[in-house]
């Protein structure tokens, strides 16, 4: 996390000089102290997240591909003759085996990012999803994203 913050600082500055580096190091140290004091940050947790970066990149690529497919469907839906009659929106309850809150938030965000489904609320072992038609509901049931998240969650 400190390395990430420092890289972000360098990107915002767009140049590497001595004063920029010194200011960045001081700011990052203060932020790291603040996070470990109030944000529940620790080196062990950082290592756990860092070990999952390759799996996470695969997850993001999969998400972008799914988004493109669902977007084409969505565009066809908007440009069809009678959009209001051809859709059947519904709020469904989707059970998920994800335990940690990080995993559930990631699942909810990826559901919301995929066109056709929105997370309305997140419960203890389920998410309430508003789906726009049958196709979106089916893609929610058998999506590979959730399996990837379950694999990533092991040992966290």
């Amino acid at each position: 996390m400190p390395i990430l913050l420092f890289l972000l600082w360098l990107v915002f500055n767009e140049r590497i000089t001595a004063d920029v580096i010194i200011t960045g190091v001081i700011a990052v140290l203060i932020l790291t102290w603040f996070l470990s004091r109030f944000g529940g940050w620790s080196l062990k947790r950082d290592g756990q997240f860092a070990a999952r970066i390759p799996a996470f990149i695969g997850f993001v690529i999969n998400l972008i591909i799914e988004m493109c497919i669902a977007n084409i469907h969505m565009i066809a839906l908007v440009l069809s003759d009678k959009p209001n009659e051809s859709i059947r929106p519904a709020i469904v309850k989707h059970k998920t085996p994800l335990k940690t809150s990080v995993g559930r938030v990631a699942l909810a965000n990826s559901i919301t990012l995929t066109p056709g489904t929105i997370t309305v609320d997140v419960g203890d072992n389920c998410v309430y999803v508003h789906a726009i038609d049958e196709r979106a509901r089916k893609s929610l049931e058998n999506s590979s994203l959730e399996n990837k998240l379950i694999n990533m969650e092991k040992g966290l």
Partner: peptide
Amino acid sequence: DECKVEELP
């Protein structure tokens, strides 16, 4: 009226 609600929190 607007959508089919199966279950709500």
